[in-house]
Design a binder for these strands. Sequence first.
DNA 1: CCAGTGCGTTTGCAAATGCATACACGCTCT
DNA 2: AGAGCGTGTATGCATTTGCAAACGCACTGG
Lengths: 146, 146
Amino acid sequence: MELPKVGSIGEYIREQRTQAKISLRQLAAQAGVSFPYLSQVERGVRKPSAEILNQIAKGLRISSQALYVQAGLIDEREPESDVLAAIRADVTITGRQRQVLVDIYESFRKENKAAENEGAQPTQPAEPLDAASLNGHATSEGYNLP
Amino acid sequence: MELPKVGSIGEYIREQRTQAKISLRQLAAQAGVSFPYLSQVERGVRKPSAEILNQIAKGLRISSQALYVQAGLIDEREPESDVLAAIRADVTITGRQRQVLVDIYESFRKENKAAENEGAQPTQPAEPLDAASLNGHATSEGYNLP
DNA sequence: CCAGTGCGTTTGCAAATGCATACACGCTCT
DNA sequence: AGAGCGTGTATGCATTTGCAAACGCACTGG
């Protein structure tokens, strides 16, 4: 067994960045790293240290552990905590709210899977979500909910 | 700001090692790193990369995450809700999708809390997010909070 | 007494990280 | 035509990682 996803950490970061629709420099600024270095990291030229990885995770607003798992730095013995199970087990929300969350999550999964199978389609496949209507700019300013 | 815990990771490793009653060289061998380097790491002279950390964790038979937390590489905020933790740890959705889910969930929580205190009076009738526009079919009937 | 073995530490040194600077390309104005 | 601003990329260089080899110290036993 060779290591399948050794270099995938860079791809993953770039994927997350482009999905978030922020530029390399923006992410670098938010993460507190230099943009040329981030570029090299995304292409697998350089392998970032844990600190850099952590800061990138912060800049991307994703969990550090997700990055570590992708980088193969965590054995991921756990079945990547099931979101649906957690939602169903939550007693602080109503049944209807639960249903909304489940539906949205599943639709995300479905569209992501569809995007995968589409291969490299230059045009953005169906814009999966009107996230802009939720928070406007998720990137620069902090998001605010009423 | 965050410089104090630089050496604590080394202390932690050494603590774990002595507690396991194995020598520096033994641990180095099991972890697949050189013993001189491990010595430096334990005294805070060198700061190991994530890979080394992961291997040391393996050698110590402890969870990688414990080490990362000690090294300050994982923020380990309070347990939060299981739902949020699961969402943040999910690698199958994009950062923006993640943020949408988090926002929706938090808004649910907030409104529920407001409903508790106010009795049955909807404090803010304006829906914080039109999640229905995200997936269209998910909640055709809409979801007015009780 | 001092060879043999274990321990942890120090000492160079190749290789890598991470940054600042400069570069090439694309786009929009005036 | 350019100037200007945006993107991502190559290059030079200080700093650091991480290792192999050599070191000092304590304990054994032939």
